Amino acid sequence: MPLCGLIFTQWRFIVLFYSFLEQICHISPQNNRQLRRWRSPCSCVGERCARRSTKLEFVSASTREGGLQEASTCLETGSWVVIYGTLPSKKENVIYLSNHQCTVDWIIADMLAIRQRALGHVRYVLKDGLKWLPLYGWYFSQHGGIYVKRSAKFSEEAMTNKLQQQIKSGAPIYLVIFPEGTRYNPDYPQVIAASQAYARKEGLPELRHVMSPRVKAMRIAINTLRCRLDAVYDITVVYEGAVKNNGQRETAPSMPEFLCRECPKIHIYFDRVNVKEIPEETIFMKRWLHERFEIKDKLLTDFYEADDEQKRHKFPGEGRHSQLSLMRTLPSLLFLCCLTVPMLATETGRKIYMKTWLYGTLIGWLWVNISP
Rank of each mutant, 00 (worst) to 15 (best):
S62C: 04
Y147R: 03
L75Y: 14
T86M: 03
G129F: 04
Q101W: 15
D105H: 05
E156S: 15
Y84N: 10
I107S: 09
A50E: 15
E57R: 15
K127H: 09
P29A: 05
L126D: 09
H26R: 10
I27M: 14
G120Q: 02
L135S: 06
Q30Y: 10
A113E: 11
C102K: 05
I146S: 02
F58H: 09
K149F: 05
P134Q: 11
T77C: 01
Y18F: 15
Q142W: 11
L16C: 00
S53H: 01
S40T: 09
A71I: 08
Y139W: 14
V104K: 00
R117E: 09
S60D: 06
I114E: 14
A113K: 07
R115G: 09
T77K: 07
T54I: 07
C49W: 13
L119A: 12
G78A: 04
F154M: 11
H26A: 01
G137L: 13
C44H: 10
G120W: 01
N99H: 03
E65T: 11
L119F: 01
S40V: 02
G46T: 07
T73E: 07
R36A: 01
W138S: 08
L68R: 07
Y136M: 14
L130H: 00
F140R: 01
S43N: 03
Y84V: 02
R48P: 00
A118V: 00
R33W: 10
G85F: 10
L126Y: 11
W106Y: 14
Y136V: 02
A109T: 06
P134H: 05
I24T: 05
V148R: 06
I24H: 03
I146T: 05
T54A: 12
M159Q: 08
Y147D: 09
L130D: 06
R115K: 13
R12I: 04
S19V: 03
I27T: 02
T63W: 15
V148F: 09
C74V: 03
L97E: 14
F17S: 10
F58G: 08
I14H: 07
L87R: 06
Q116W: 08
S62G: 05
C49K: 02
V59H: 09
E92I: 13
V15Q: 14
L119K: 04
V15K: 01
G46A: 02
